[in-house]
């Protein structure tokens, strides 16, 4: 094990964490502003990936695909908000879980009908193929671009929430929805915009990740559940918490899968070590979540509603 390999795995973890952040940001925003738990967020991730892969396949242009993926996810998000979610804001969490669970069934089968049962594949754009030398180690350019894109979107989101009129309304909506409605803000339109924004971020994450994994039905749910872990760690409703949680989960999960089998190999025979290491690595982030819950039951950055 060399420093170069360790550094490469750390970058992979960072990249995974930033993609998780794109998912978690939408989830935590929707919960913070509307008080809604949305299980179908993973389906929006999947929709982004499918539309990106299909559009890129048709036009031969990755960037058109990326735009199509984001647009499709945002449109699906807005449609879902107007038809279904709007009726759920005043309901209890159980109804929300159930309705969005139903949406997963509908969207997954719908995607299967639209795109067929087989996985799609998305090529890395020619501009971003190859590797780049980072001193310690050569690293795939596309993955580096994912890191840069993730940081860029996070900065953009921070500016949007902190520096624009829409951001002010979103923060006001988190604090007191009746009051901002009374002040003349169209709260219904605001909710639709927030939901579509979260959906677009999930779609972007799906489209970006689609080039490094196969695009298939059911790809959204594992990411969704990790995004839940992220926002439980970070504090539900907190964008900053989502960032910290996502980086923690991304890096710890990736490094755990890389390091634990080697650590176990120091005192177990190799076949057992890889099995035990992999098994422990797969539950590492959940143990982290349990630990943080013991210390801070409301997450690292609790939001006071």
């Amino acid at each position: 094990m060399t420093a170069a390999l360790l550094f490469e795995q750390f970058l992979n973890g960072l990249q995974f964490g930033l993609m998780l952040f794109l998912m978690s940001a939408g989830l935590t925003l929707v919960f913070g502003v509307m008080g809604l738990i949305n299980l179908a967020h993973g389906s929006l991730f999947m929709i982004g990936a499918f539309f990106c892969a299909a559009a890129a396949g048709l036009t031969g242009n990755f960037w058109l695909g990326l735009a199509a993926g984001m647009a499709a996810a945002a449109a699906a998000g807005a449609l879902i908000e107007v038809t279904v979610m709007r009726r759920l804001y005043t309901r209890d969490h159980l109804d929300q879980v159930l309705a969005t669970f139903a949406l997963i069934l509908i969207l997954s089968e719908g995607t299967k009908i639209l795109f067929g049962p087989f996985p799609l594949y998305l090529d890395v754009p020619p501009l971003l193929t190859g590797t780049v030398d980072l001193g310690l180690t050569p690293y795939p350019l596309y993955r580096l671009a994912l890191i840069v894109a993730g940081i860029g979107v996070a900065l953009g989101l921070w500016l949007l929430i902190g520096r624009t009129r829409l951001g002010i309304r979103i923060r006001a909506g988190e604090n007191d929805r009746e009051m901002i409605a009374a002040l003349g803000v169209n709260i219904r339109a605001l909710y639709t915009v927030v939901f579509a924004l979260g959906a677009a971020l999930a779609g972007l994450a799906g489209a970006l990740v689609g080039a490094v994994q196969s695009v298939q039905v059911g790809m959204g749910e594992p990411v969704l559940i990790l995004a839940f872990v992220v926002i439980v760690i970070g504090g539900i409703g907190s964008i900053r918490g989502a960032m910290v949680g996502a980086l923690l989960v991304g890096v710890i999960d990736t490094m755990g899968r890389f390091l634990l089998p080697q650590v176990f190999a120091l005192f177990l025979d190799p076949s057992k070590a890889s099995g035990a290491g992999a098994a422990l690595a797969s539950i590492l982030v959940y143990l982290l979540m349990a630990l943080i819950l013991v210390i801070r039951p409301k997450g690292l950055f609790p939001v006071h509603a």
């Binding site: 839940f228 872990v229 926002i231 439980v232 959940y286 409301k298």
Partner: peptide
């Protein structure tokens, strides 16, 4: 509430 739902799912 919502924490409980997500945590039971995660465990």
């Amino acid at each position: 509430g919502i924490f409980f739902i997500m945590i039971t799912l995660a465990f």
